[in-house]
Write a protein that binds this DNA or RNA. Structure first.
Lengths: 338, 338
DNA sequence: CTGTTAGCGCATTCAT
DNA sequence: ATGAATGCGCTAACAG
């Protein structure tokens, strides 16, 4: 019986010894076998199999200039399928480039983001992809990051001039709101993130712009901008719909708010309440939107693509020219009518 | 102007030099400051801030016995919100234990799983959490993994006796199917994964058991067991519903199949087709199931909890007793009627 | 309380 | 084509 935790990982020395060669020959073999006699390679590879050897990537990356092969990615909420897909997009492109991702969840917490970034750098990540919590930028400044390139996704950080992938938040929100106005709605509620969140601000701006342009006043009584999760969004929708002059349509600035609003609307329908059944425009797609009991217009965009784009930006800086100035890619959104 | 990529990361030596102490004093300070004069600590910390120093975690973990602080996690499909939540659960518990997760997506591909596991081990992960692709177990055998503890989630691998977190697949599927039978259905279709997928097999078994017990024959014509994604599930549902004797209810063995089936059903309703509107029982919850145009019974379970449980199992082996035999935790599911 | 020495696993450099 | 020496950044173990 072996020990409970199995044996220590074998090292390249042990492989070499078993193969009867020097560690260098083993190392060279593992590096591709340039300048190593085929028969020795055979013996090394046999020893590798025999011992179950894995090259220690950490030791490998210790030597300066050697990349760690890790991309650090910090997102704000993994429970949101949107960010799951985002991470998947990054992971796909990273895998294509032979990199692994190391993932952390900030939960919209500034301190946690700082901690994650430190840790990532301490692990010698080759690059960093961040959906920033916003707040201040001190810990993301290039001088703090050393050589590690950073790409921001979804949101920009004030005062930070780095590669960024954004959505056309303003345009999408504008067009979505216009579609409601075109349908004759004038009492249009707003559900979204607090304005300190970059997308929350931008999407509200698009909404506001459309309303103002058409001469429809924005009524603060049916604007709720502080919901981060489904439960809070439900409550906000409820409050709005319980008013004397409830909205006939609701613009929801993100997935979580949309689900919350629909949950509340569904509850009212099931309870047989007569009240209004507001039309919805949702920034962010969600599954089965076509089956909802009220018409849902979706401002659709592909989280996975956003992730792929962010990763592409990162690898272009990593593998190609490094001196180009910071770029911003703004991905289009598409409006899907019910 | 500095170079385009910023400066190399400072090392502990440079910190020590700037603080006018030896590297060991700097190291000790960073390790908590035991046995270091407060004024020297001050100077070290000042130097750290000044230089923007981050401890190189890879170098640190090079020394034997030092944990890397990384937990490797490989899941089959990050795009499935279920696994996003699973990863989140693992991430939460890992963070509580001061660990980071390093995440890979296998896409149900055996080779990719092997590759990921090798890479994780090469990065000296402290532990491994896997939703296995099944197939063979050679690369997961303890002797291949060395000291690295492994926890399986959702699925078991034949011939591999390790800590495992499962759902009550059979019981849940059984109870869900019974609820349909109790409602008077006798023609109940099945949508699920191919039987080589562990959960696919188990959930089918629960379905079959309930049917058999009630003397209702399982008709292969309305059993489709090969869909991995929403599009395939839609097609399978379509084929089933287009038959001469379509099912009056459908048991769907997972989230992806449920969405696909509902998408097809919704399409038929919107097209004003008269055909049957089958009731659904869905293994796996999904958002807004209460708003569907057909009654949906959900066999609910918490992916995040599954992740937390897997991580808890792992850390108990990592931080506590190591010699206990392999454990299996089977989490209960709850049935939520429409 | 502080510093010196040594070595973790690997690969670059320089011999042979 | 092969091997020996060396050092990456860090911290136990030992000395002072």
């Amino acid at each position: 019986m072996s020990t409970s935790r199995g044996a220590r990982q074998p090292t390249i020395k042990e492989v070499a010894r078993l193969a009867g060669v020097s560690p260098m020959t083993a190392s060279r073999t593992l590096a591709g076998g340039r300048n190593v006699r085929p028969d020795l390679q055979e013996r090394v590879l046999a020893a590798v199999r025999e011992l179950g050897y894995y090259r220690n990537e950490n030791a490998r990356s210790l030597r300066p200039g050697q990349p760690s092969g890790l991309i650090g990615i910090a997102i704000t909420n993994l429970a949101n399928p949107y960010y799951g897909n985002f991470a998947l997009g990054v992971e796909e492109v990273a895998a294509e480039h032979g990199r692994r991702i190391i993932l952390g969840n900030t939960g919209e917490d500034d301190a946690r983001e700082r901690q994650l970034v430190s840790d990532f750098i301490g692990r010698q990540v080759d690059g960093l992809i961040l959906v920033p919590v916003s707040g201040d930028a001190a810990h993301l400044k290039p001088e703090r990051l050393g050589e590690v390139p950073l790409v921001l996704a979804s949101r920009r950080v004030p005062g930070l001039d780095v590669d960024t992938v954004l959505l056309d938040d303003v345009g999408g929100a504008y067009r979505g709101t216009v579609s409601l106005l075109d349908a004759g709605h004038t009492r249009i509620g707003f559900l979204g993130n607090r304005s300190s969140v970059f997308t929350g601000e931008r999407r509200f701006r698009g909404y506001e712009q459309a309303m103002t342009e058409r001469g429809v006043p924005v009524d603060p009584a049916i604007v709720a901008r502080d919901q981060q999760d489904v439960a809070a969004a439900s409550l906000a929708a409820k409050a709005m719909l319980d008013r004397d002059e409830p909205p006939t349509a609701i613009f929801s600035a993100n997935n979580r708010n949309t689900i919350g609003a629909l949950r509340e609307i569904g509850r009212r329908i099931r309870e047989g309440r007569s009240g209004p059944r507001p039309a919805i425009v949702s920034f962010d797609d969600f599954e089965l939107s076509e089956l909802m009991p009220v018409p849902v217009t979706v401002i659709d965009h592909d989280a996975r693509l956003l992730g792929r784009e962010a990763a592409t930006l990162l690898f272009s800086r990593l593998d190609e020219d490094v001196a180009v100035p910071a770029r911003t890619v703004e991905l289009p959104v598409s409006i899907e009518y019910p």
